[in-house]
């Protein structure tokens, strides 16, 4: 297996001087090609900041990110992001198909017909055939999030980043979307890095779970998920491996804040802050 993503000593500080806030502190990890890695961390610990650094949307104040060996400076060509807030990240003036085609619009080597074909194909991967002509606001929340997943897949990214993609849908839809994501990932051998604050979700979805500490985010543990590739919402969640892994992640998350703080840069370490874990 080759390495898809290599994050070395990544830090990010917002602001400077008095108001500086260290959101991410010295993170190092790799994601192998074809892997679905989950990052789980308490809310506000810097997960979105981490993904924004990896996706090139912001430039980290320290450390380095490489994607299949190339250093990330701007938004890489073969990377896609799915945001939590699907209703705000779909363009309301474009139809579903135009939304999915959006990242392909600027690829000069694709003809109009090819773009359309790719969009329809991506929509069928997420079980949304035949809604291309509708507008996003005519769809339910779960369907909207599928559209943004289709849009990301249409780009055929080497790495797909997902920032709490299922946090804003109801439980039933969430189960459906989790299974959908895993089947798409298995079918296409995609490499996915998914961020969540939900312990169960990280274990259910991941081939690997990276546990983050409270703010500023540090990696507390890197656990392989010892579950069969085919997962099932009922039996997997009942299995002994799942239950013990979930317990382990929960203990790490709760204990993470008590670990000795590294030299705090800028802001005082606040260990009394109540943890807001799901």
């Amino acid at each position: 297996m080759s390495t898809m993503l290599n994050v070395t000593g990544l830090s990010h500080r917002y602001g400077s001087g008095e108001n500086a806030h260290v959101a991410v502190n010295d993170l190092t990890f790799v994601v192998e090609t074809g892997e679905l890695a989950c990052i789980v961390g308490p809310s506000g610990c810097g997960k979105s900041t981490l993904l924004r650094c990896i996706s090139g949307l912001i430039e980290p104040t320290g450390g380095e990110v490489t994607l299949h060996g190339d250093r990330v400076t701007g938004v890489p060509e073969d990377l896609a992001v799915v945001f939590q807030d699907y209703s705000r990240s779909l363009f309301p003036w474009l139809t579903v198909r135009q939304n999915v085609e959006f990242p392909l619009r600027w690829k000069r080597n694709l003809s109009r017909a090819e773009r359309r074909e790719r969009a329809e194909e991506a929509l069928s991967w997420v079980n949304l055939p035949g809604v291309g002509g509708k507008y996003p606001w005519q769809l339910s929340g779960g369907m909207q999030q599928r559209v943004s997943i289709a849009r990301a897949l249409a780009r055929r990214p080497a790495l797909l980043l997902m920032d709490e993609p299922f946090a804003s849908v109801d439980a039933q839809t969430r189960f459906e979307l989790e299974d959908l994501l895993r089947s798409v990932q298995v079918a296409h051998g995609s490499t996915i890095l998914l961020v969540t604050h939900d312990i169960d979700e990280s274990v259910y979805l991941g081939d690997r779970v990276l546990v983050l500490s409270k703010s500023p985010a540090r990696i507390v543990a890197d656990l392989p998920v010892d579950l069969p590739p085919e997962r099932d919402q009922i039996t997997t969640r009942e299995s002994k491996n799942f239950v013990s892994l979930r317990g382990e992640v929960a203990r790490l998350l709760h204990g993470g804040g008590d670990a000795p703080e590294q030299a705090p840069t800028g802001e005082p370490a606040d260990t009394t802050e109540p943890s807001t874990l799901a």
Partner: peptide
Amino acid sequence: DPLLIDTARSCGVSRARILASVALPH
């Protein structure tokens, strides 16, 4: 909405093109 801009940027759209493809239609 800054998220709309981020979405466009993460789709590989340059800042100049974001003007035409996102800011103007919005």
